[in-house]
Computed example of a mutant assay.
Amino acid sequence: MASNPTPPPEPQDDPDRYVGLEGARAERLAREQGWTTVRPLAPGTLVTMEYRFGRLNLEIDDGRVVRAWKG
């Protein structure tokens, strides 16, 4: 039986640091920190619950990040 692949390492970055930033700036900074996928979301957007290594979700309301989380 094949072993499960080892997921790639995630950036050592705190998602909370993006809260309050302007959306485009937060996306740019997240990519500079090494996040492979940055997903901007409108408040209330339905998202799947699967965890993706290297993905940062940014909930953006009125142009500012109001919530940020991994996966």
Results as ranks from 00 to 15, higher is better:
M1K: 11
M1S: 04
M1D: 05
A2W: 05
A2E: 04
N4Q: 12
N4Y: 14
N4W: 09
P5E: 15
P5V: 07
T6S: 13
T6M: 13
T6Q: 12
P7V: 00
P7I: 07
P8K: 12
P8G: 07
P8M: 11
P8D: 13
P8N: 09
P9T: 00
E10D: 06
E10G: 00
E10F: 02
P11G: 00
P11V: 03
P11S: 05
Q12G: 02
Q12R: 14
Q12A: 08
Q12V: 12
D13V: 11
D13Q: 00
D14W: 03
D14T: 07
D14Q: 05
P15K: 02
R17T: 13
R17C: 05
Y18W: 11
Y18A: 00
V19W: 04
V19Q: 03
V19R: 00
G20D: 14
G20Q: 01
L21I: 10
L21R: 04
L21E: 12
L21Q: 11
L21C: 06
E22N: 06
E22P: 01
G23H: 05
G23A: 13
G23C: 10
G23T: 03
A24L: 11
A24N: 15
A24G: 03
R25C: 01
R25Q: 08
R25S: 13
A26H: 01
A26Q: 04
E27R: 15
E27K: 15
E27W: 05
R28C: 02
R28A: 08
R28Y: 13
L29C: 00
A30Y: 08
A30S: 06
R31L: 14
R31D: 05
E32N: 11
E32P: 06
E32V: 10
G34R: 14
G34I: 10
W35K: 04
W35C: 07
W35Q: 06
T36I: 07
T36L: 15
T37V: 14
T37S: 09
T37H: 15
R39L: 15
R39E: 15
R39T: 12
P40N: 07
A42E: 09
A42T: 09
A42D: 04
A42Q: 14
P43Y: 04
P43D: 06
P43G: 02
G44P: 06
T45S: 11
T45I: 08
T45E: 08
T45G: 01
L46Q: 13
L46W: 12
V47H: 09
V47Q: 08
V47D: 07
T48F: 08
T48L: 14
M49R: 12
E50N: 13
E50P: 15
Y51C: 02
R52L: 15
R52E: 14
R52Q: 10
F53Y: 11
G54C: 03
R55L: 10
L56S: 02
L56M: 08
L56T: 01
L56W: 04
N57C: 05
L58E: 07
L58P: 03
L58I: 09
L58V: 03
E59L: 08
E59R: 07
E59M: 09
I60P: 00
I60Q: 02
I60M: 06
D61L: 09
D61F: 02
D62H: 12
D62A: 11
R64I: 15
V65F: 03
V66Y: 09
V66M: 06
V66C: 00
R67G: 01
R67T: 12
R67N: 08
A68P: 02
W69R: 10
W69V: 05
K70Y: 08
G71H: 04
G71K: 05
G71F: 09
G71L: 10
G71R: 01
G71D: 02
G71S: 08
